[in-house]
Every structure is written in C-alpha cells, then in structure tokens.
Simulated scan of single mutants.
Amino acid sequence: MVLFRTLKELSTKRLAVDQKNYAEITGHLFEYTWNLWKSDVQTILQNLSMLSQRNDIDSVFEQSNDLALICDRWLLCLMIVRLLIFSGYASDSRTAQEVWQVREVCPTVLTAIKSLLPYYDTFKDKHAKLCDFAKRACTKLMKVLVTLQGRHPYSFVHETVLSATVDFCLNMITNPEQTGTTFEEFLIQSMVLVKSVLECKEYRPSPMGRVINENEPLSLEQRKKNFAAVASDMLKVILSGDRVVLLCNILVRRYFIFTAKDLEEWSENPESFHHEQNLVQWTEKKRPCAEALFIVIFEKYREV
C-alpha cells in the first residue's frame, strides 16, 4: 500500500523530468508486479474452485489466512499495474505510439473477469465474503479496462483487446443471466466501456481513409488515421445493424423501467424523487447509465 500511495503521488507531477523518472520507475516495476498478479490470480482461481466444491466453506476459509492475504495483494497489484500503465507513458492519443503493456494486460484481465464471474453466483448463497470478493474483483477489473481504453485508445485497437472486450460487454448487457452477472456495478461498467468506445474521437475514421506508404515513414497524423480506420472496421463487425437494434430494445425494455421501489418513492414524494434523479451521476446507477448509452447509440446509428 505504501508503494501504491508513493506511485500515486509521483504520478501527479507534471514536469518533464518527473515524467521521465516515472517512466523509468515503470520500466523497473511493471514486470515484477504484473508477474506477481498473474501468479496470484491462478492461486485465487484454484482456491475458489476448491472451495466451491466444499460443504464446509466457512471453516476452510477461516483457517486459510493465506487466501485472504493473497486476494488483498492481488487487488493491490492490479491498482499498481493500472497506475504504471496510465501514468508511466504519455497518452497514445497524442503520440500514436503503441503501449505494449495494454495489449499484454487487457486480454489477461478480460480472461480473469470471465473466470471470476461465475463465482459470484456460486457463492451468493454460500459465503458472503467470497461472493463480495468476486463482485469487487470483477468490477475493479472492468474499471481497469475502461481506464486503459480512455488513456491509450490506439493501443486498445487490437482483435484481442477492442473487439473481444466490446463483444463481451455487449453480451453482458444483452444477456447477463447466462453468467449470473446480475449485480448492478458490473453491468454499469460494461455500459461505461461500450459508451466510451462509441464516443472515442480517436476511432472516428478519416474521410481520407487509411494511409499506406511503404517508401516513407508514416507521420503522426497518418498513424492516427490508420488506427482510426482499423478501429472503425472492427466496430462495424461487432456492432452490426441487427445487434444495434437488439441492444437498443434491451436498453429500453429492461434497463429504462422503473422498479417497484422507484414507483413507491415517486408516489410518496414526487418532488424529492425528481431532484434525486437529477443529482445522480450517470455512472452511479444502472438506469441513467443505460439512458446515456442509448443516447450515444441513437446519435451514432441514426440510419439503422
């Protein structure tokens, strides 16, 4: 935790020499932290698999202090890895230089999400602490993907990253029951990522199209145009017209609906309910998040 706080403090410095020093720190720390994270996630998954088959989960978990410590260390390593990639390199939206760690980390993070998600449903009625861990872990992992896409959008443009992540999030939004992802926080982050990708100005194709010139090195703007063209092509495949229509229907029919509790609060105090709805940030609740995503889709796919 001391290391994380120190890195976070150093990341706020804006002088060129400080940023250069931070890049050097990233070079020294990333491999060790990332390898430790990967090792811990395998240990955690093995233990969760073992515990899911036991009837005496409480006693086994209480006796295993190591697992709780490993889980805490794993989450801390995740925060450090995210911080190193975020602050250790200038945003590739300015440099158009790929940050290789994004393509290294994001597919592994997505795989970890897919592996951990079922345990939320598995432990929901069996063990509150393990259920809460699966819930927090999946939400934090998705937030890492959102953060890295926003910071390094061009490095995110890869079949194993952009296509796979957006496709996964769309499946979660349209059919969360298949993986038991009924908890609101994860669905919100899935919507946030899709919205972020669709709004990303770096992914808007240039009228000039992709630039190919084998004789001369590409300029900064030419590299950006090439990335944008690739991203645009990927999104066209992932978000076909039929899928856009399906997504809009589900957003309206499933996520826009007021719950019984909402209607009760509205009936009891309409004015207070109205003000509370206006004060809620769109990233905090499922319905306003779905509404924000729907608006972006409607504006981007008017012709569908």
Rank of each mutant, 00 (worst) to 15 (best):
K143P: 00
N269S: 14
K129I: 13
T111I: 06
E291M: 12
H275T: 12
S240R: 02
P270N: 11
S11R: 08
E265N: 13
I250D: 02
A137H: 09
H158R: 10
L193W: 02
W34M: 13
F186D: 02
K286I: 14
S232K: 09
G88I: 09
T181M: 14
W37Y: 15
S11Y: 06
V109L: 08
I188E: 04
A290P: 01
K140C: 11
K195T: 05
R151M: 15
T6F: 12
E276L: 06
T6Y: 09
S240F: 01
P207S: 03
E291G: 05
T108Y: 02
H152L: 08
L51Q: 03
T181V: 13
D58A: 15
S190H: 05
L187W: 03
A16C: 02
A128P: 02
L3D: 06
Q53S: 06
K225W: 10
R54H: 09
V230T: 13
L78F: 00
R94K: 13
Q19F: 00
E199W: 04
R302G: 10
R5P: 00
G241S: 14
Y22C: 05
V252I: 12
A292K: 10
S11K: 05
M234K: 04
S91I: 05
K140Y: 12
R287Y: 04
K286W: 01
V157W: 01
N213R: 14
Q42R: 07
C77G: 05
T165H: 04
K129P: 04
N278D: 07
Y120V: 12
L76C: 10
A290S: 07
E264Q: 15
T283H: 13
A96M: 10
W34A: 12
V244N: 02
V244L: 02
L279Y: 01
V2W: 07
H274N: 05
P270C: 08
D233G: 03
Q63C: 01
F86W: 11
L48Y: 13
L251C: 05
S52N: 03
K38V: 12
E9H: 09
D40N: 15
G209D: 04
V102R: 03
Q101A: 14
D18Q: 14
K261Y: 01
T147Y: 08
I297M: 08
P205I: 05
L246F: 02
W282L: 09
M191E: 03
C77H: 15
T33L: 10
P217L: 06
F86A: 11
L145Q: 07
S272L: 10
I212K: 01
R82S: 12
M234R: 03
I257Q: 11
P207T: 03
H152F: 11
I85Y: 08
I57A: 12
L67N: 06
D66F: 10
Q42G: 12
T26K: 15
I250Q: 05
T12C: 07
G150R: 10
L293F: 02
K300Y: 02
G241E: 13
P207L: 03
V192G: 04
W74K: 07
K143F: 06
F294S: 00
V161T: 15
T147G: 03
